[in-house]
Amino acid sequence: MSQVIVDGVLLGNRTDSDAALTVRLAVLADELGYREIWLGESTGHDAFALAVAVAAAAGDLPGACADAEAGRPPGAGPATADEIRRATPEPRNRAALTLGPLPALVRDPVTAARGAASVATLTGRDIGLALTASTGLVVVDWHGRPRTDPATALAETLTVLGPLTRNEPISFQGVSVRSRGFRARLEPSEASLTVLAFGLEASEVAVGRADRVAVPLATVEHAARIKARLALTADRLHRSVPRLAVFLPTVVDPDQQALDWIRRSLLPYLDADGFGRMFAEAGHGELVDLARGGAHERSLLAAMPEDVLRSIAAIGDLNQVCSAFEDYRQAGVDEIVMLPENHAPGVIEHTIRALAK
Protein backbone atom coordinates (compact mmCIF):
# COMPACT_ATOMS: atom_id res chain seq x y z
CA MET A 1 0.00 0.00 0.00
CA SER A 2 1.28 3.44 -0.91
CA GLN A 3 1.66 6.14 1.72
CA VAL A 4 -0.51 9.02 0.57
CA ILE A 5 0.73 12.42 1.67
CA VAL A 6 -2.56 14.25 1.32
CA ASP A 7 -5.85 13.69 3.16
CA GLY A 8 -8.27 13.51 0.26
CA VAL A 9 -8.91 14.27 -3.39
CA LEU A 10 -11.89 16.08 -4.94
CA LEU A 11 -12.93 14.89 -8.40
CA GLY A 12 -15.84 15.59 -10.72
CA ASN A 13 -16.58 19.09 -9.46
CA ARG A 14 -16.12 21.02 -12.70
CA THR A 15 -18.97 21.96 -15.01
CA ASP A 16 -17.20 20.13 -17.84
CA SER A 17 -16.27 17.06 -15.79
CA ASP A 18 -16.24 13.80 -17.73
CA ALA A 19 -18.03 11.23 -15.55
CA ALA A 20 -16.16 8.26 -17.07
CA LEU A 21 -12.80 9.98 -16.51
CA THR A 22 -13.79 10.86 -12.95
CA VAL A 23 -14.58 7.20 -12.25
CA ARG A 24 -11.22 6.10 -13.68
CA LEU A 25 -9.28 8.63 -11.63
CA ALA A 26 -11.24 7.85 -8.48
CA VAL A 27 -10.50 4.13 -8.86
CA LEU A 28 -6.82 4.98 -9.32
CA ALA A 29 -6.86 7.01 -6.10
CA ASP A 30 -8.64 4.14 -4.35
CA GLU A 31 -6.05 1.63 -5.53
CA LEU A 32 -3.21 3.89 -4.40
CA GLY A 33 -4.57 4.08 -0.87
CA TYR A 34 -6.19 7.54 -0.67
CA ARG A 35 -8.30 7.67 2.48
CA GLU A 36 -11.08 9.87 1.13
CA ILE A 37 -12.44 10.56 -2.32
CA TRP A 38 -14.77 13.53 -2.69
CA LEU A 39 -17.17 13.32 -5.61
CA GLY A 40 -18.62 16.66 -6.62
CA GLU A 41 -21.39 17.31 -9.07
CA SER A 42 -22.35 20.05 -11.47
CA THR A 43 -24.06 19.92 -14.83
CA GLY A 44 -22.66 16.58 -15.96
CA HIS A 45 -23.60 13.92 -13.41
CA ASP A 46 -25.17 13.08 -10.08
CA ALA A 47 -22.79 12.56 -7.16
CA PHE A 48 -24.71 9.62 -5.67
CA ALA A 49 -24.79 7.74 -8.96
CA LEU A 50 -21.12 8.53 -9.50
CA ALA A 51 -20.21 7.11 -6.08
CA VAL A 52 -21.86 3.77 -6.88
CA ALA A 53 -20.14 3.73 -10.27
CA VAL A 54 -16.76 4.29 -8.58
CA ALA A 55 -17.37 1.47 -6.11
CA ALA A 56 -18.50 -0.86 -8.88
CA ALA A 57 -15.45 -0.05 -11.01
CA ALA A 58 -13.24 -0.66 -7.96
CA GLY A 59 -14.67 -4.17 -7.63
CA ASP A 60 -17.03 -3.65 -4.70
CA LEU A 61 -20.25 -4.66 -6.44
CA PRO A 62 -19.81 -7.24 -9.20
CA GLY A 63 -22.28 -10.10 -8.79
CA ALA A 64 -23.44 -8.97 -5.37
CA CYS A 65 -27.14 -8.96 -6.18
CA ALA A 66 -26.90 -12.23 -8.12
CA ASP A 67 -24.88 -13.84 -5.33
CA ALA A 68 -27.41 -12.71 -2.77
CA GLU A 69 -30.24 -14.21 -4.82
CA ALA A 70 -28.45 -17.53 -5.31
CA GLY A 71 -29.98 -20.38 -3.39
CA ARG A 72 -33.09 -18.45 -2.37
CA PRO A 73 -36.30 -20.48 -2.75
CA PRO A 74 -38.73 -19.58 -5.55
CA GLY A 75 -41.06 -16.77 -4.59
CA ALA A 76 -38.85 -15.64 -1.73
CA GLY A 77 -38.70 -12.13 -3.16
CA PRO A 78 -35.67 -9.97 -3.80
CA ALA A 79 -32.61 -10.10 -1.60
CA THR A 80 -32.61 -7.78 1.38
CA ALA A 81 -30.08 -5.01 1.86
CA ASP A 82 -28.29 -7.09 4.52
CA GLU A 83 -28.06 -10.06 2.17
CA ILE A 84 -26.65 -7.90 -0.61
CA ARG A 85 -24.14 -6.40 1.81
CA ARG A 86 -23.00 -9.85 2.95
CA ALA A 87 -22.68 -11.01 -0.65
CA THR A 88 -20.63 -7.98 -1.67
CA PRO A 89 -16.94 -8.89 -1.72
CA GLU A 90 -14.65 -6.96 0.57
CA PRO A 91 -12.71 -4.51 -1.60
CA ARG A 92 -8.95 -4.34 -1.26
CA ASN A 93 -8.97 -0.58 -0.74
CA ARG A 94 -11.83 1.23 0.87
CA ALA A 95 -11.53 4.97 0.57
CA ALA A 96 -14.38 6.83 2.19
CA LEU A 97 -16.69 8.44 -0.36
CA THR A 98 -17.78 12.00 0.40
CA LEU A 99 -20.63 13.24 -1.77
CA GLY A 100 -20.56 16.89 -2.64
CA PRO A 101 -20.38 19.75 -2.09
CA LEU A 102 -24.16 19.57 -2.56
CA PRO A 103 -26.44 22.65 -2.45
CA ALA A 104 -28.41 22.45 0.79
CA LEU A 105 -31.21 24.56 -0.65
CA VAL A 106 -31.77 21.99 -3.39
CA ARG A 107 -30.96 18.65 -1.73
CA ASP A 108 -33.49 18.48 1.08
CA PRO A 109 -32.46 16.46 4.16
CA VAL A 110 -34.58 13.38 3.37
CA THR A 111 -33.23 13.20 -0.17
CA ALA A 112 -29.65 13.56 1.03
CA ALA A 113 -30.01 11.05 3.88
CA ARG A 114 -31.76 8.50 1.67
CA GLY A 115 -29.08 8.88 -1.00
CA ALA A 116 -26.30 8.45 1.53
CA ALA A 117 -27.93 5.32 2.96
CA SER A 118 -28.35 3.90 -0.53
CA VAL A 119 -24.69 4.46 -1.39
CA ALA A 120 -23.54 3.05 1.95
CA THR A 121 -25.69 -0.07 1.52
CA LEU A 122 -24.63 -0.69 -2.08
CA THR A 123 -20.92 -0.01 -1.60
CA GLY A 124 -20.16 -0.92 2.00
CA ARG A 125 -18.07 2.25 2.23
CA ASP A 126 -17.88 4.97 4.84
CA ILE A 127 -19.91 7.86 3.49
CA GLY A 128 -19.78 11.61 3.94
CA LEU A 129 -22.09 14.41 2.87
CA ALA A 130 -20.72 17.88 2.15
CA LEU A 131 -23.22 20.74 2.00
CA THR A 132 -22.97 24.28 0.74
CA ALA A 133 -25.31 27.25 0.48
CA SER A 134 -24.34 27.38 -3.21
CA THR A 135 -25.00 30.28 -5.56
CA GLY A 136 -28.03 32.05 -6.94
CA LEU A 137 -27.27 30.57 -10.36
CA VAL A 138 -27.62 27.01 -9.06
CA VAL A 139 -30.38 27.50 -6.51
CA VAL A 140 -32.58 30.14 -8.12
CA ASP A 141 -31.90 29.92 -11.86
CA TRP A 142 -31.35 26.18 -12.28
CA HIS A 143 -33.66 24.78 -9.63
CA GLY A 144 -36.18 27.57 -9.13
CA ARG A 145 -35.80 27.62 -5.35
CA PRO A 146 -35.67 30.72 -3.14
CA ARG A 147 -32.34 31.77 -1.66
CA THR A 148 -33.37 34.45 0.81
CA ASP A 149 -31.48 33.27 3.91
CA PRO A 150 -28.83 30.71 2.93
CA ALA A 151 -27.19 30.48 6.36
CA THR A 152 -30.47 29.67 8.11
CA ALA A 153 -31.39 27.11 5.47
CA LEU A 154 -27.98 25.49 5.84
CA ALA A 155 -28.27 25.38 9.64
CA GLU A 156 -31.77 23.90 9.50
CA THR A 157 -30.73 21.30 6.92
CA LEU A 158 -27.88 20.14 9.14
CA THR A 159 -30.16 20.05 12.19
CA VAL A 160 -32.49 17.64 10.40
CA LEU A 161 -29.89 15.72 8.41
CA GLY A 162 -27.83 14.56 11.38
CA PRO A 163 -30.64 12.53 12.98
CA LEU A 164 -31.79 11.21 9.60
CA THR A 165 -28.36 9.73 8.82
CA ARG A 166 -28.65 7.85 12.13
CA ASN A 167 -32.25 6.72 11.45
CA GLU A 168 -33.51 8.74 14.41
CA PRO A 169 -37.06 10.10 14.34
CA ILE A 170 -37.27 13.78 13.51
CA SER A 171 -39.99 16.38 13.79
CA PHE A 172 -38.75 19.80 12.78
CA GLN A 173 -40.47 22.98 11.64
CA GLY A 174 -38.06 25.70 10.60
CA VAL A 175 -38.10 28.76 8.40
CA SER A 176 -36.79 26.99 5.30
CA VAL A 177 -36.78 23.30 6.24
CA ARG A 178 -39.58 21.09 7.53
CA SER A 179 -39.54 17.34 8.10
CA ARG A 180 -41.68 14.94 10.10
CA GLY A 181 -42.18 11.21 10.20
CA PHE A 182 -39.61 9.91 7.69
CA ARG A 183 -38.01 6.58 8.65
CA ALA A 184 -35.55 4.93 6.31
CA ARG A 185 -35.88 1.24 5.43
CA LEU A 186 -32.11 0.94 5.01
CA GLU A 187 -29.42 0.73 7.64
CA PRO A 188 -28.29 4.22 8.75
CA SER A 189 -25.39 5.59 6.76
CA GLU A 190 -23.88 7.34 9.81
CA ALA A 191 -22.56 9.78 7.21
CA SER A 192 -20.08 12.39 8.36
CA LEU A 193 -21.29 15.94 7.70
CA THR A 194 -19.18 18.72 6.22
CA VAL A 195 -20.06 22.36 5.60
CA LEU A 196 -18.43 24.22 2.75
CA ALA A 197 -17.75 27.69 4.09
CA PHE A 198 -15.64 30.72 3.35
CA GLY A 199 -16.91 33.45 5.63
CA LEU A 200 -17.83 33.76 9.29
CA GLU A 201 -21.56 33.04 9.10
CA ALA A 202 -21.40 29.66 7.36
CA SER A 203 -18.42 28.65 9.49
CA GLU A 204 -20.36 29.29 12.69
CA VAL A 205 -23.31 27.29 11.35
CA ALA A 206 -21.09 24.22 11.34
CA VAL A 207 -20.21 24.35 15.04
CA GLY A 208 -22.35 21.83 16.86
CA ARG A 209 -24.02 20.65 13.65
CA ALA A 210 -21.22 19.30 11.43
CA ASP A 211 -18.08 17.26 11.82
CA ARG A 212 -15.98 19.40 9.53
CA VAL A 213 -15.69 22.73 7.75
CA ALA A 214 -14.19 22.82 4.27
CA VAL A 215 -12.90 26.08 2.79
CA PRO A 216 -13.13 26.11 -1.01
CA LEU A 217 -10.16 28.39 -1.66
CA ALA A 218 -7.91 29.98 0.93
CA THR A 219 -4.55 31.53 1.54
CA VAL A 220 -2.67 30.21 4.55
CA GLU A 221 -3.58 33.39 6.46
CA HIS A 222 -7.29 33.09 5.66
CA ALA A 223 -7.29 29.43 6.71
CA ALA A 224 -5.73 30.43 10.04
CA ARG A 225 -8.47 33.04 10.56
CA ILE A 226 -11.20 30.48 9.86
CA LYS A 227 -9.62 28.08 12.35
CA ALA A 228 -9.50 30.81 15.00
CA ARG A 229 -13.15 31.73 14.37
CA LEU A 230 -14.22 28.11 14.71
CA ALA A 231 -12.35 27.78 17.99
CA LEU A 232 -13.89 30.96 19.41
CA THR A 233 -17.41 29.97 18.36
CA ALA A 234 -17.00 26.46 19.75
CA ASP A 235 -15.74 27.87 23.05
CA ARG A 236 -18.68 30.26 23.26
CA LEU A 237 -21.19 27.50 22.56
CA HIS A 238 -19.35 24.91 24.66
CA ARG A 239 -19.08 22.62 21.64
CA SER A 240 -16.20 20.75 20.06
CA VAL A 241 -14.28 22.47 17.27
CA PRO A 242 -15.07 21.01 13.84
CA ARG A 243 -12.13 19.78 11.80
CA LEU A 244 -10.95 22.23 9.18
CA ALA A 245 -10.24 21.12 5.62
CA VAL A 246 -9.00 23.27 2.76
CA PHE A 247 -9.50 22.60 -0.93
CA LEU A 248 -6.11 23.17 -2.52
CA PRO A 249 -5.51 23.25 -6.28
CA THR A 250 -2.55 20.91 -6.67
CA VAL A 251 -0.31 20.10 -9.61
CA VAL A 252 2.99 18.26 -9.33
CA ASP A 253 5.52 19.27 -12.02
CA PRO A 254 3.16 21.67 -13.80
CA ASP A 255 3.81 22.85 -17.35
CA GLN A 256 2.74 26.26 -18.62
CA GLN A 257 -0.65 24.96 -19.73
CA ALA A 258 -1.32 23.66 -16.24
CA LEU A 259 -0.42 27.00 -14.67
CA ASP A 260 -2.62 28.84 -17.17
CA TRP A 261 -5.48 26.49 -16.34
CA ILE A 262 -5.26 27.43 -12.66
CA ARG A 263 -5.09 31.11 -13.64
CA ARG A 264 -8.34 30.81 -15.60
CA SER A 265 -10.00 28.94 -12.73
CA LEU A 266 -9.30 31.89 -10.41
CA LEU A 267 -10.92 34.55 -12.58
CA PRO A 268 -14.45 34.26 -11.08
CA TYR A 269 -13.04 34.71 -7.58
CA LEU A 270 -11.08 37.91 -8.09
CA ASP A 271 -14.03 40.29 -7.80
CA ALA A 272 -16.25 38.08 -5.63
CA ASP A 273 -17.10 39.29 -2.14
CA GLY A 274 -14.72 37.86 0.42
CA PHE A 275 -12.44 36.19 -2.09
CA GLY A 276 -11.44 39.54 -3.57
CA ARG A 277 -10.58 40.86 -0.12
CA MET A 278 -8.53 37.76 0.57
CA PHE A 279 -6.47 38.25 -2.59
CA ALA A 280 -6.04 41.94 -1.81
CA GLU A 281 -4.83 41.12 1.70
CA ALA A 282 -2.33 38.73 0.14
CA GLY A 283 -0.82 41.65 -1.79
CA HIS A 284 -2.73 41.36 -5.05
CA GLY A 285 -4.97 44.41 -4.72
CA GLU A 286 -4.10 45.79 -8.14
CA LEU A 287 -5.28 42.59 -9.80
CA VAL A 288 -8.51 42.67 -7.79
CA ASP A 289 -9.07 46.30 -8.81
CA LEU A 290 -8.59 45.33 -12.46
CA ALA A 291 -11.21 42.60 -12.11
CA ARG A 292 -13.68 44.87 -10.35
CA GLY A 293 -13.12 47.48 -13.03
CA GLY A 294 -14.34 45.06 -15.70
CA ALA A 295 -10.99 44.25 -17.32
CA HIS A 296 -11.08 41.67 -20.11
CA GLU A 297 -10.17 38.08 -19.27
CA ARG A 298 -7.02 38.28 -21.39
CA SER A 299 -5.85 41.34 -19.47
CA LEU A 300 -6.46 39.65 -16.14
CA LEU A 301 -4.59 36.52 -17.18
CA ALA A 302 -1.65 38.57 -18.42
CA ALA A 303 -1.56 40.55 -15.16
CA MET A 304 -1.75 37.50 -12.87
CA PRO A 305 1.72 36.62 -11.57
CA GLU A 306 2.63 33.14 -10.43
CA ASP A 307 2.68 34.45 -6.86
CA VAL A 308 -1.11 34.63 -7.00
CA LEU A 309 -1.26 30.94 -7.84
CA ARG A 310 1.19 30.03 -5.11
CA SER A 311 -0.90 31.90 -2.53
CA ILE A 312 -3.81 29.47 -2.92
CA ALA A 313 -2.34 26.40 -4.62
CA ALA A 314 0.31 23.73 -4.20
CA ILE A 315 2.36 23.76 -7.40
CA GLY A 316 5.90 22.78 -8.33
CA ASP A 317 7.96 19.68 -7.79
CA LEU A 318 6.97 17.18 -5.11
CA ASN A 319 9.05 18.90 -2.42
CA GLN A 320 7.45 22.29 -3.18
CA VAL A 321 3.96 20.78 -3.08
CA CYS A 322 4.67 19.06 0.24
CA SER A 323 6.09 22.32 1.61
CA ALA A 324 2.86 24.11 0.68
CA PHE A 325 0.84 21.41 2.43
CA GLU A 326 2.96 21.85 5.54
CA ASP A 327 2.36 25.62 5.58
CA TYR A 328 -1.39 24.97 5.80
CA ARG A 329 -0.97 22.36 8.49
CA GLN A 330 1.14 24.77 10.53
CA ALA A 331 -1.72 27.29 10.23
CA GLY A 332 -4.09 24.84 11.92
CA VAL A 333 -5.60 23.10 8.89
CA ASP A 334 -6.53 19.54 9.86
CA GLU A 335 -7.08 18.10 6.40
CA ILE A 336 -5.93 19.01 2.90
CA VAL A 337 -8.19 18.03 0.03
CA MET A 338 -6.37 18.44 -3.24
CA LEU A 339 -8.01 19.53 -6.46
CA PRO A 340 -5.86 17.94 -9.17
CA GLU A 341 -8.30 18.66 -11.99
CA ASN A 342 -6.62 20.24 -14.96
CA HIS A 343 -6.79 20.56 -18.71
CA ALA A 344 -5.19 17.17 -19.36
CA PRO A 345 -6.03 13.81 -17.76
CA GLY A 346 -2.35 12.90 -17.82
CA VAL A 347 -1.51 15.86 -15.59
CA ILE A 348 -4.20 14.83 -13.11
CA GLU A 349 -3.06 11.22 -13.05
CA HIS A 350 0.58 12.24 -12.60
CA THR A 351 -0.35 14.36 -9.58
CA ILE A 352 -2.48 11.63 -8.01
CA ARG A 353 0.32 9.11 -8.43
CA ALA A 354 3.07 11.48 -7.25
CA LEU A 355 1.34 12.08 -3.92
CA ALA A 356 1.05 8.36 -3.21
CA LYS A 357 4.68 7.41 -2.77
Rank of each mutant, 00 (worst) to 15 (best):
G44T: 15
H45G: 08
H45W: 15
D46A: 10
A47K: 00
F48R: 08
F48C: 11
F48D: 03
F48V: 10
A49V: 15
L50I: 04
A51G: 09
V52T: 14
A53M: 05
A53R: 11
V54G: 04
V54C: 07
A55Y: 00
A56Y: 07
A56W: 10
A56P: 00
A58M: 01
A58S: 11
G59K: 01
L61P: 00
L61A: 01
P62S: 08
P62H: 12
A64V: 08
A64L: 10
C65F: 15
C65V: 14
A68I: 10
E69W: 11
A70Y: 07
A70G: 01
A70P: 08
A70D: 09
A70K: 14
G71S: 01
R72F: 05
P73R: 09
P73H: 09
P74W: 12
P74E: 14
A76S: 15
A76M: 03
A76Y: 02
G77W: 14
G77S: 13
P78K: 09
P78T: 12
A79V: 12
T80N: 12
A81K: 05
D82V: 12
I84L: 01
I84S: 03
I84H: 03
R85K: 14
R86F: 09
T88V: 05
T88M: 15
T88W: 06
P89L: 05
P89K: 14
A95V: 00
A95Q: 03
A95L: 01
A96Y: 03
L97H: 02
L99W: 05
G100M: 05
P101C: 04
L102D: 05
P103Y: 02
A104N: 06
A104I: 03
L105T: 04
L105S: 11
V106L: 09
R107Y: 15
D108C: 01
D108H: 13
P109D: 13
P109M: 07
T111S: 14
T111Y: 08
T111F: 07
A112E: 02
A112S: 10
A112V: 00
R114H: 11
R114L: 10
R114G: 15
G115I: 08
G115S: 10
G115V: 13
A116N: 04
A116D: 13
A117H: 01
S118M: 04
V119N: 06
V119W: 14
V119R: 10
A120S: 10
A120R: 08
A120I: 12
A120F: 06
T121G: 06
T121E: 05
L122Q: 13
T123V: 02
T123L: 01
G124S: 08
R125W: 04
R125N: 12
D126Y: 03
G128W: 00
L129K: 08
L129D: 03
L129S: 13
A130S: 03
L131Q: 01
L131H: 06
T132P: 05
A133Q: 07
S134Y: 06
T135Y: 12
T135A: 12
T135I: 11
T135M: 08
G136V: 02
G136F: 07
L137G: 03
